[in-house]
């Protein structure tokens, strides 16, 4: 364990906490609203640990949907993580099996995005950094879930205090972080159009998988930018 890298991870987790905490609290409040006890809500945050799918889960449970369908829906919402774990493999091959177990358990959207960004800057995705970043977010997710479950009614409408814009803006910031990659604009354009169309015609949560697939398939089909400009520096101006 490298203390400096662990601390660096903790520090970089801070913006994530700002963006995600209202949703931890919102989840806790909604869970209690749907018949969960405070302990149930924290238990779900601690074991599933995937915000959007947890919201879907409590909503379905509150509507007395069959158990297998609840689990299948949560699986569908979380399906994008398959892409994350395939993509992050390049950076964490050197982890021990136990380290990998924890790394995959804690592999949420910001964890994946920050790991990729770190690798892109040429820094090693060390286990110390990974764990520091992950644990501060995990811990705060449990705490805010509990706070939301206890004080649920006091949060009221998240829209009234402007909390609903935080998550999309946070993800927008993550997207911007990848703007120097090959094929960035076509990939973003394809995923944006496909996800908006899928949201309209198919509905949530399928817009995530469909939109992501559009961008990824397009990237695989486009001719390689690097190969064409061989000899030129790959650096692109911003």
């Amino acid at each position: 364990m490298n203390k400096d890298e662990f601390r660096e991870g903790l520090r970089q987790g801070f913006p994530v906490i700002v963006a995600a905490s209202p949703f931890g609290a919102l989840f806790g409040a909604l869970a209690v609203d749907n018949g969960f006890s405070i302990a149930d809500a924290v238990f779900m945050s601690a074991t599933v640990y995937a915000g959007a799918s947890q919201m879907v889960g409590i909503e379905l449970f509150g509507n007395h949907v069959q158990p297998w369908l609840i689990v299948l829906s949560i699986f569908a919402v979380n399906f994008r993580h398959v892409l994350y774990s395939a993509s992050i493999a390049r950076h964490i091959r050197h982890y021990t099996p136990i380290q990998k177990f924890f790394a995959f358990f804690l592999l949420i959207d910001p964890q994946y995005a920050e790991s990729e960004r770190r690798a892109e800057r040429g820094l090693p995705v060390t286990y110390s950094w990974y764990l520091g970043f992950a644990l501060i977010i995990y811990f705060l997710w449990l705490v805010t879930t509990a706070i939301g479950a206890v004080f649920g009614q006091m949060i009221g409408d998240p829209k009234a205090i402007g909390l609903d814009v935080l998550l999309p803006i946070y993800f927008l910031g993550l997207v911007l972080g990848f703007r120097k990659r090959d094929r960035f604009l076509p990939v973003v354009a394809a995923s944006a159009v496909a996800s908006v169309a899928a949201m309209h015609f198919v509905g949530s949560p399928w817009h995530v998988s469909i939109g992501a697939l559009a961008g990824v398939v397009l990237a695989a089909c486009l001719p390689g930018e690097r190969a064409e400009r061989e000899g030129e520096p790959v650096e692109q101006g911003s």
Binding site: S87, M199, V208, A219, A220, L222
Partner: peptide, 23 residues
């Protein structure tokens, strides 16, 4: 490899674009 490189921008965009259009 190219497909995997596109994963972060592709997935994260799907969490942004619908919020922009329907939010």
């Amino acid at each position: 490899e190219a497909a995997l490189n596109a994963v972060p921008a592709a997935v994260l965009t799907t969490l942004v674009a619908p919020a922009f259009v329907y939010g």
